[in-house]
Design a protein around this nucleic acid. Structure first.
Lengths: 197, 197
DNA sequence: GCAATGACAATCTTCAAAATTTGTAATTTG
DNA sequence: CAAATTACAAATTTTGAAGATTGTCATTGC
């Protein structure tokens, strides 16, 4: 049985973006490889930009699901916050290493504030808020100001999470980045736990 | 009395870069406005890139001097570290707001790891190290691991200092950025003071 | 009536020639 | 002799025409 057109276009587009990059990604080529004329692609995606965003969004949503699994788990909030930060940092860093073209498309979507990236950011932030609130409810975290505490965690970890920041460290040995990130996480957890923020 | 050629070229180049940006900055135009042929510019600067870097370097060095004044002051180390971070963050943020073309040139020099930016980074980092070491010597800071503590401060403040990170927040109200930065600084000082890092 | 196509205008990219700019070196000027 | 210029090759940018891609829509086919 034949794959429905929409998913088929999306998977061909994903391959094309990964292999050839944004610059050489064309609706005509995707359509041809999906066995249809380019006009038909526009039945499913309103524009080339929307198709690219859809490809990036598949990755973002998959990453979000893994983060939500962590946030929904039964573990203590401080454990979950640590794993949340680590998982997000690693997901982005691994994408940079393994799928540079897809990473570049994500990076652009973030830089140009596309809807997909703004919405992803909102949802990921909500996961962080949930876990921190859970930690406050359980007494694991005792920040003096909840909103400030959340902003602190996001600002302090920015360097290890944001695509623009990760690009700068692409050539730093992974072990060294890992060590610094683990220091930062340890500090952030202590800061949340001891009412410093 | 007529300004010597080298400084004259440099000041005309600075004006051109600020007004027209990197893209439209040409050695020919700078030379003409400085009242000479372009070949003569090459007596003083080995290439267009070197001239651009020299302009950026003037700004970097001026900023460094202000930071060094803070680091050399008689105040307690924790005060000085706070002022160091604030001064560096504000210098870069003000440059983005007031001289976007010069900021863009700096941003590129950093992204492409030009010698001027690598050396600036090394010297600014040395100032941070000096102040933190001073704080350790005076007992104001008691980190468990000096190098980790320094890395922590630099990583945590990255978002408010690095050009690539500042570009992302150009449209966030200054007051909100200031509030977050001041939280981050307060936390970092407490962290250094209480052996958390 | 839903999926797909062919035909088309508008936009964007490519390519090659022309123009400009970068960079070098021999020569001039004060 | 130090500062600057003229003259020139190499590299880069601009320009404009040809070609390709994007996006729309009326029409076809099942």
């Amino acid at each position: 049985m034949r794959e429905p057109s929409e998913t088929r276009i999306l998977s061909v587009a994903s391959e094309h973006l990964r292999q050839h990059g944004l610059r050489r990604f064309t609706v005509v080529a995707v359509a041809e490889e999906a066995g249809m004329t380019h006009a038909n692609v526009y039945r499913y995606f309103p524009s080339r930009a929307a198709l690219v965003d859809a490809v990036v969004d598949v990755w973002l949503k998959a990453t979000e699901r893994r983060l939500a699994d962590i946030a929904d788990g039964p573990d203590p909030a401080d454990d979950k916050l640590e794993r949340l930060i680590l998982a997000l940092a690693r997901a982005n860093r691994d994408l940079l290493a393994e799928e540079p073209h897809l990473f570049a498309a994500l990076s652009q979507a973030v830089a140009k504030r596309h809807a997909i990236s703004r919405r992803n950011r909102t949802r990921v932030r909500a996961l962080f808020e949930r876990v921190i609130d859970e930690g406050i409810a359980s007494g694991a975290f005792e920040p003096r100001d909840r909103d400030r505490a959340i902003a602190f965690v996001i600002d302090a970890t920015h360097r290890f999470i944001h695509p623009a920041a990760l690009e700068l460290e692409a050539d730093v040995p992974q072990a060294s980045v890992d060590a610094r990130l683990s220091t930062l996480i340890r500090v952030a957890l202590r800061v949340l736990g001891t009412g410093i923020v």
